[in-house]
Structure formats: C-alpha cells, structure tokens
Amino acid sequence: MAHKSASIILPSEITSEALFHDRRAVLAMGLAGAALGAATPLTALADIPAERYKAARNARLSVTETANTFEEISGYNNFYEFGTDKSDPAANSRNFKPLPWNVTVDGECEVKGKFALEDLLAPQTLEERVYRMRCVEAWSMVIPWVGFPFAELLKRHKPTSKAKYVAFTTLNDPKQMPGQRERVLDWPYVEGLRMDEAMNPLTLLAVGVYGKALPNQCGAPLRLVVPWKYGFKGIKSIVRISFVEQQPRTSWSHAAPNEYGFYANVNPAVDHPRWSQATERRIGGSLLARRQATLPFNGYADQVADLYKGMDLRRNF
C-alpha cells in the first residue's frame, strides 16, 4: 500500500480477510526461509512500535490528581469477557492476542471497510490524557491513557446526515475470552454514544496506558474512554464501529434496564437502585481513607453539561 501519506484508507486498499491469512502464510514461509539466511523480526507485520505509546501529555485535558499505579490499573478490572471477579481479567487474558487486529467501520458513513489497527493509527497523533475513571460500582481511579480523540477517527470515515449514534462492538471469541462461555451478558458486548457525545473532544480511543500498549485486561488493543460516564461505557477490545440511525441496544442497559441507562453519565444525584452514587472510594487509598464526593459528570461538567441541556437526567440516567 503506497498511500502512507493519504489520510483516508479506501476500502479497496484494505486487505481482505482471506488475503490477510494468506499473507501470514506467505510470511511464515518467508521466515522459514529467512531463518536459514538473515534473521527477520517475527512481528514485523502486525507490530506497533513501542515508541508510539510514549506520547506527550495533553495537559489541558488532563487532571492533576495523582494517578493510580500500573499495578492497580491492570490488577482490578471489570471485563466480564475474562470473568466476573476483579482479578479474573488479569489472570485469564494472558493468552489473548491483541495483534494483529482489524476494526470494521460501517453503517451510515462514506468510508467503510475492515481496517488493520496499524492503518487506523497511522494518521493519528497519540497523546497522553490523565482522566478520572468512575465505576458504576462507586469506586474510582485516575488513569494516564494513551490514545487519540474519537472525533479524529470519525472525521476520516465521513458519517452521513443519517448517522445519529455510534455503536461499538467488542470481539466475540469464547476461545480467547473464557468469560464469554458463560452467558452472564448477551455477547458480544455493545456500547454506544450519541453523535455529539462521540465528537466531544474528551471522548478518547485509547491504545495504551502509562506510555505502553494497553495490557490485555484493560481492553487491548483498542478501547473507548468516556470520562464523564460510568466505566462500563468504555467498551474494550473494539472490533466494530458502526454509524447508526437508532439508539443502539447497549449491553448493560439491555441486561438490567432499571439499573443501567444508555447515557450512564456520572451523577451523584441519581442513585443506583441498590447503592448510593453520591460518594466513591478512590482505589489506592489507605484502609481508613474516607470516601470522596462524586462530582456531576465526574468533574467534567464544564466540557459536557451543555450536551444534555433540557434533558431530564433523572429519567435519562
């Protein structure tokens, strides 16, 4: 593909899945030959260089609170595809293969197709953003993500006027994701945003954390981060991004509609039916640390409250 400088990758340029597998076979044969002669790096095709993740911090959109440690961020996860306990994702995702990775972009947009992750990333400038993360279970962390604004990807695919929402889908592969062998949720996991939410500068597609590629348990290789919403909106291991006309049927709001809404904005005034959302426990504090007050829109009200003007947030929770 000679269009490295072109900003848009046309569907016709995208390697078909059959060809893709083929090229791996070709590569393997090449490597077998190469082993006899000059050594070739094995991961050449699907690798993203480590330096790409060492991105400069966007200070304007970062919080100044102390970030959680890498151990906390990668050892305490809700990622039901790998099990429902907080320690399951780290334990059960060791054999997960985040690369090579393809993402299908389709629906109400002009530039559709199946894109290799490295091609999607090629035109993007990665940046570090330190965001608060508030889980719907009333705990929170501060995480230095590495990623790029979703709006930058959105632009390149030219959604049409019919696109009212963006739907995201996680990989569905019970072989690699043992949690999917149990029907705890209706797999695959689906999340969604309204177009204006998706285009908000805070909405991030993350590929790394702490200057390194995302660990598998954090949603490698590509995940969504929407810091003013509860953590479950941040869909992980994304394989599909669809521009759609109707509000997508998102996983948690479908599983328990009285407990989890489509919007899921962090809101201390609207309790979960079974627990208060007024306060949160910051992970990493001492055993005797007090809970802290939860902020409307998780402290991002200045940037996002306008999106919901005139809406009853008690009903649209």
């Binding site: 151990e71 305490y76 907080k86 705990w139 426990r281 992970i283 055993l287």
Partner: peptide
Amino acid sequence: GALGVAGVSLGVDPVRSL
C-alpha cells in the same frame, strides 16, 4: 492483610476484600 504484616496483601481494593 489489613495491618500489612507478614507479607499478606488484601489486593488492590482492601476494603472490598475485607
């Protein structure tokens, strides 16, 4: 684990563990 002695750890979220 709560007192942090004998190398016992209650994990990332000790309150929840307890």
